[in-house]
Amino acid sequence: MPPVAMQSLAQILTDHADAVRSAWITAVADELRGRTSRGELEREQADIFDALVEGLQRGGERIGDEPFDQLRGILSDVSSARARLGFTPRETAVGVFALKEGLYGLSAQGVTTDVTPLLRLVDELGLFTFESFAAAREAIIVEQSEQLLELSTPVVKIWEGVVAVPLVGTLDSARTQVVMETLLNTLVETGSAHAIIDITGVPAVDTQVAQHLLKTVVAARLMGAECTISGIRPQIAQTIVALGIEFGDIRTRATLADALVDALRSDRRTAATVLA
């Protein structure tokens, strides 16, 4: 549709703004059933409506056109806010699709201009809103997953110069990276010379898990800290032997307590050597 025609549709929306917006907000409020206040809906609606009219006046025809840059930004912000507040995709998209309720009523007000291009544009706006919501929710899931990884891999100072990483659950590549970063940062912050990696809560140790543990130990050693792997239960010991996994000169202990005692003894021997 030529820009002049789109500007004509913008004028129709401006002339019948009250009726269009009234039908629009009523449809949205009925769908959301009080999940957000009417005042908040009116503010969002006013921003979307004004940006839509401005884009039409500037000759915009499709949602991707430059005149609708501001409108896309508003819809993205609304979608992200809805995603963080736990709204469903339907509840988010209806905020745009319900604009059709206002457009359908234009003929009853004596408007004879074909508003089909506007209806198509609303469909595009609704789809853009849905896609923005999906992208925002995916980003939230990734962010929450990273936070859970950090929470599930704490590094605690259990004695002066000794820190421990109690691992629970499966140890994969992503989690290993978090363990490394957290452990190395803690070694620097505390100045600890000993690190204990406790795998009591790791259900099974295979070749891949062993490789992840070795990488973590090597990273800690590069920072000048000696590492001990504790929590080697009989079943895990048998599995390690059966798989032919070699821990080399890495110290291993059956329990976290044994590893702590070993670290403290090593610390005293080091101190005695220095003093001698």
Rank of each mutant, 00 (worst) to 15 (best):
M1Y: 03
P2G: 01
V4T: 02
V4K: 09
Q11W: 02
D15C: 08
D15E: 15
H16L: 13
A17I: 05
A17M: 09
I25Q: 11
T26Q: 12
E42W: 08
E44M: 14
I48L: 12
D50A: 15
L52P: 04
E54P: 00
G64F: 11
S76K: 05
R82W: 10
R82V: 10
R84P: 07
T88R: 11
T92M: 01
F97P: 00
E101H: 06
L103K: 00
T113P: 00
P117N: 12
L119S: 10
I140Q: 01
I141L: 15
I141H: 11
S145T: 10
L148S: 00
E150D: 08
V156G: 06
G161D: 04
V162N: 03
P166M: 13
P166T: 12
V168A: 06
T170Y: 11
L171V: 14
V179P: 04
M180T: 09
T186D: 00
T190C: 05
G201W: 02
V202M: 13
V209H: 02
A210N: 12
K215D: 07
A219D: 04
I229K: 06
S230M: 05
T239S: 15
V241Q: 09
L260F: 12
S266V: 04
S266F: 06
D267P: 01
D267G: 12
R268L: 15
R268K: 14
